[in-house]
Every structure is written in structure tokens, then in C-alpha cells.
Design a protein around this nucleic acid. Sequence first.
RNA 1: GGAGAAAUGGCAGAGUGGUCGAAUGCGGCAGUCUUGAAAACUGUUGAGGGUCACACCUCCGGGGGUUCGAAUCCCUCUUUCUCCGCCA
Length: 423
Amino acid sequence: MLQLQVIREEKDNIIKALKKRNIDAESMLNGVLLLDEKRRATQTRLDNILAESNKLSKEIGMLFKSGKAQEANALKEKTSTLKDESKQLGEDLANTAEELQSLLYQIPNVPHHLVPAGCSEEDNEEVFKEGDIPKLVDNALPHWELAKKYDIIDFELGVKIAGAGFPVYKGKGARLQRALISYFLDKNTNAGYTEMQVPHLVNEASGYGTGQLPDKEGQMYHVTADDLYLIPTAEVPVTNIFRDTILQESDFPIQYTGYTPCFRREAGSYGAHVRGLNRLHQFDKVEIVRVEHPNNSYDALDAMVEHVKDILRDLKLPYRILRLCGGDLGFTSALTYDFEVFSTAQDRWLEISSVSNFETYQANRLKLRYKDENGKSQLAHTLNGSSLALPRVLAGILENYQTEKGIQIPEVLVPYCGFDLID
RNA sequence: GGAGAAAUGGCAGAGUGGUCGAAUGCGGCAGUCUUGAAAACUGUUGAGGGUCACACCUCCGGGGGUUCGAAUCCCUCUUUCUCCGCCA
């Protein structure tokens, strides 16, 4: 959520920057400013009435104490009109505040100046590319065929138990999955991230805190009996650790990592691009989250990008990094780098990580602040990234590491797997 | 799931209708003393709105109610603790 004060001061710049998202925000922002003014005016009137009535109440108290009941009762009558007025104004205020709030929820984050304008993923900007695309055997297979051939992932079995998009990993497939999780977590903790295990269901307030609610509730599984949501990413529970928190400057940097399954309804997805592991309702992901001083958040973003690069180098997977354009940028993000692994057998790039700086956008919703050197509260910056999302990494490994003898295991994973070949 | 108790500032803990945004202690910060530190002493120390700055307003788990006036009384929800039951 954007800060009101910033909208007041930099409306024109915000409008300009939001054009990169192909949004004309002018009328929305004007609406915000109008409501803001109305809210403050109402608040002032209400405050004055409350002040008056507080004063009278005190006087009444004094009069009763000194035995002047008659005068006190006379004053009581005066307060009743004030009471009516304040009740009315209180309702007005609540309505205006709610209207203002819901309008603010509709405005996405302001893109960073590096974000290119653009409409779709076509316009994302490739900023880095590394790793050799392997020469595969003739008749190389896509991962869903390999999964079947080596009996390591059973999609049909998942359909039977839960539905499409809930695969069952078997034998060496399951072990490889677990190996990846352990390896990612070790890699992250060695880089200074503290490992956290967090709930896989969250309440409504947490959904609002990181921005999944109110707009994207259709993407989350909602447990209505208890009004809880299955997490679509560890970002939600981990970042919400800091909801309603005031940090000291000395608390920075905060670096957390966590493994969780992720649940996404993915309503409306279909076709070849969702085959196999490409898009699932349940998948595993290891996430990194940082809370930073505003002065340091872009250095932190760079560090996160370098960290993910390092992992992909370890795995020896060919990848590229895209800077997302305004049209593809997530609602809450100011700047996002997507990592994509090249899937040789599918001849396409698969997104395996998304690393973002949200600046104060989430912090404002979370009320995540720190005390600056003058002792004043300021909003912190939040960042997160996948390191990494499992299924597509697995797809990339299966496809890129296939040989005539079987699927080789990347060297760094062999100690975690206990085998070096799936055959 | 059943019975009982409780929820107050960073923490501990007073406060049962007006003078309470809230005693006191600890912690934090600043100062005095000291070569420096510790101890001791003095002062200061919640959040939000509002204002050029004050004033002023709101917040004592959440929501609602009674009252001229609520941390304090009533209703409701949530959470925590104790006992019982069930259980990985």
C-alpha cells in the first residue's frame, strides 16, 4: 500500500511511474487525495466535539462532587446533542476511512526507475545469461516422460488422491526432492540466512499484510471452516513475522529462509505450458526473505540475485535473468528479477525464481517500522526471493542431465541424495 | 471437546466508574561522577491521527453496549494458563 503522505507530495511522479504498468492512475490518486482531505476534515470536526464533550464530562464530575447536582444535570442535557453529533461524525469518518482504504488497496506499487515499460513477458529485459546448454541425446524426452520412464513422479496417482496438479514423488524422485530442499537450505544458511519453520496456513490479517488479500484471494485455497488460507508461498508467513513490529536500526539486516510447500489454485490455467511439473497446485519452495533499512535495500536485492546465481552455478544449469517490465511486474513489487532455467527437452525457459524488492509497500500494510537515528518511526523495506522453487528445478535437472544410461545427479546434490544416477 | 482463571506500555506488575495514557520496578536513552567502565544519583522513555508548531483527539486483547463520563460495569469473539478427556 502506498503511503498517503507520499501520494500527497509526489502525485505526478507516481502517475508517471505507474504508466509503466500501463495504468492511468490519475483519477484514482485524485480520488485518494479527495477522500484523504474529507477524512481529515471529518476527523477534525469529530475531535473538536469530543474535546468539548470531554470537558463537559469533567465539569459534571466536579459538580457532582461538590454537591451541585442540579447544575450537573443541566450540563448533562447539553452533552446529549454533542453525543448525537459525534455518533454521526464517527460513522462518516469510518465510512470515509474505509473507502479510502479500499481505494489504496487497488493501487499497485510504484515501479523502480530501472523497470522497463512494457505490456507482457515479451517486454521483459534480459540482463544476464550464463551456463552452457547441453547437447542432449537424440530423442531426448521432456521431464514428464522421464518421470514415467524412471518411475520417479506419478501424476496419475496424485489425481486419484487429490486431483490434477498434486504429483506423487516416488523413490529416487522423492529423495532428490528432499535433497534439493536440504541443499537449498544449507546454501542459504551458509550465506547468513536464519532458517525458520512457519505455519502453512495463515489468517486473514497475514494475507492482507503481504498483499495476497484483498485482490488475489482466488489464488489461495481458503479453509472456510476456520477462515484460514493455505499459503501460496513462504513469503506470507515469514514476512508476517514482522507485522506490527518496530525494529531498531541495529536489528538490520534481517535475513530469513524457510522451506514450505506452496498451494496455488491457478484458476484458469490450462494447456501444454502446464504439463508435468510446469504448473502445480502444490509444490515445494525454499524462500529467502529480508527486511532492510531503506538505504540498503537495493544492495540487498543485488546480493540476493548473486546468491541465486551462485546456486544455479552449483547446479550447473543454464539460466538467464530477466528484469520484469511494468506489465509483468507483480502488484506489490517495485523491482523484480526473474530467473529462468532453460529446459532443453521442452526448448523453453522455465521460471524458477523471482527476486523482488517491495520497498515500503508491504511494510506499510504490515506496519513494519524501525526507529531512525532521531527516534522517529520509519517504514522498513521488505524483499524476498525463491531459492529455489523445486518443481521446475527438478524439471530442468531431469531434462538437462538425461543421458543414455539414465539421469545424472548434479555433483553438489550427490552427497544429499546418496546416489549419482537415476536409472 | 468439558470445567475454571486470566489478557494493561519493551518486560514485570498496580489500578473495580471521574483528577488514568495509566503507579511502581526492571530494561532503554541522556547527563552527573570516573582516565574509561561499573555502581550510585538526576532526568527522560508507548503507538497513531492532527498542527508550521502547539492545542486537541484515539488506543489498556478484538468488536459491540450501559453511562454526562469506562482500563474499571454488561454482552460477544479471540488468545493464554490450570485441571479433565482425546491424540502424532
